[in-house]
């Protein structure tokens, strides 16, 4: 029994339902996936509690939801770590298995990450420099420690609202800037209330399915293997499809009339300085280990050299 915030009918939920059918067939009905889409089981925290008492067994969520089980899973969320998807792919090729292993040690069996795309700043007035952003009324999700910390490191004074209040607040002008992957900005219609998108991959996002070991361990070894095979194949496919959707969504927001603005080299350097400071703080607070950060940087250095 698996909960997700993704609504019914999305590529991910449909893909997972198909995988469920395949698993049921291959295990002769011993293993079934029941999906609760659209957040009907509550938010990440409520779902985590329901998993604890056994009402649910797993969830598909943003990587951050599993950070408490394995802190280094946040390594992919380091701000401004990547310049493009090639770098993401190079890093993920090496670190995905690592993250999967770490999560399993922390109690979550997972089957591969799903691309969530880069989050970009979208705003009413063009945002090139950090000061430009500081002049905007920037939205951040309420109840989200990680983004609150990041805002502090970037010396931003954001406006915290629940996700449901974002669209109306954009309409009324209570906020006029946000950072989000283009797919989210499109689905939630946020794009229609801003004029500019800053062409700078602020943050990489990803989702994943975690099934708690407590429940997964109850399956026979053979069934576990089947589930792994089917779901890993499914997630590889979903990852690729999501990537495609994310790329086309970036095109789509431009077609919807958003102007692409780019920071100058000088301005980008400033962003990067603050981002590095934020990352250093994450390491200091033990959110990410230095060793993991070093690995990330090593892979990136190698990749950049190769070009």
């Amino acid at each position: 029994k698996i909960s997700t915030l993704y609504p019914d009918g999305t590529t991910i939920v449909t893909g997972l339902k198909d995988a469920g059918k395949e698993i049921a067939e291959k295990t002769e009905g011993r293993v079934k996936l029941k999906i609760y889409p659209g957040g009907v089981m509550g938010d990440d925290r409520a779902v985590e509690r329901k998993i604890r008492i056994g009402q649910l067994h797993g969830q598909i969520a943003q990587g951050g939801a599993f950070a408490s089980a394995y802190k280094d899973s946040q390594i992919l969320n380091v701000p401004l770590a990547f310049n493009n998807y090639e770098e993401v792919d190079a890093v993920r090729a090496e670190l995905d298995p690592e993250i999967q292993k770490g999560l399993e040690a922390g109690g979550w069996v997972s089957f591969g990450l799903i691309d969530g795309g880069f989050a970009y700043v979208m705003s009413e007035n063009p945002v090139r420099s950090l000061d430009d952003l500081r002049d905007q009324k920037l939205w951040l999700p309420a109840n989200d420690e990680a983004s609150a910390k990041a805002a502090k490191a970037f010396e931003l004074s954001p406006i915290m609202l629940n996700i449901g209040a974002v669209l109306t607040s954009l309409q009324t002008g209570a906020i006029n800037a946000f950072a989000a992957p283009p797919v989210a900005a499109l689905t939630l219609q946020w794009y229609s209330r801003v004029n500019n998108v800053t062409d700078m991959p602020l943050l990489y996002t990803f989702g994943l399915l975690g099934i708690h070991k407590k429940y997964f361990g109850r399956l026979s070894a053979e069934d576990q293997k089947t589930v792994h095979e089917v779901l890993e194949a499914t997630f590889a496919k979903l990852d690729a499809e999501s990537r495609k959707e994310n790329l086309s969504a970036f095109q789509a927001v431009q077609q919807q009339g958003l102007t692409v603005v780019k920071p100058t080299d000088e301005q980008f350097k400033e962003w990067k300085t603050y981002a590095d400071r934020a990352t250093a703080e994450l390491v200091e607070e033990g959110e990410i280990s230095q060793a993991m950060l070093d690995r990330l940087n090593a892979i990136l250095a190698k990749q950049r050299e190769g070009q």
């Binding site: 609504p7 999305t10 590529t11 449901g164 669209l167 939630l188």
Partner: peptide, 9 residues
């Protein structure tokens, strides 16, 4: 909001 989320699919 719910309808908008679904309009994608």
């Amino acid at each position: 909001i719910i309808a908008q989320q679904m309009s994608q699919q």
